[in-house]
């Protein structure tokens, strides 16, 4: 098992039950079980996680930098998509 044959796995860590899994980084591993173990060792050494997902990096479909314009710019001038015109009721905290 040579190191360069190990796949890259993206690691998502949930810090509290009910919260989203957040991308933490990646690890090398030969298979899913060892990817989970490696992720636990690298990203949850100090009790940061209650749940971990690992995903083979090559299974992720991502936008490319050249897509950035057509994908994201059109939202710039559509201020009405942001809920900033509402008045927040007084009793609401942590909005």
């Amino acid at each position: 098992m040579k190191n360069e044959e190990w796949k890259i796995w993206e690691v998502f860590v949930q810090s509290k039950s009910g919260e989203p899994h957040v991308h933490a980084g990646n690890v090398h591993a030969p298979d899913a079980e060892l990817a989970l173990q490696n992720a636990r060792d690298v990203y949850s050494r100090r009790n940061e996680a209650v749940s971990i997902w690992v995903v083979p990096a090559d299974q992720i479909t991502a936008t490319s930098p050249s897509d950035a314009g057509p994908f994201f710019d059109p939202a710039n001038d559509k201020a009405y998509r942001h809920p900033q015109f509402y008045n927040v009721p007084k009793g609401v905290r942590g909005f």
Partner: peptide
């Protein structure tokens, strides 16, 4: 260790 991840695992 044979890989960075394993290095950390053994140290843990």
């Amino acid at each position: 260790a044979p890989a960075l991840e394993e290095d950390i695992a053994l140290a843990n």
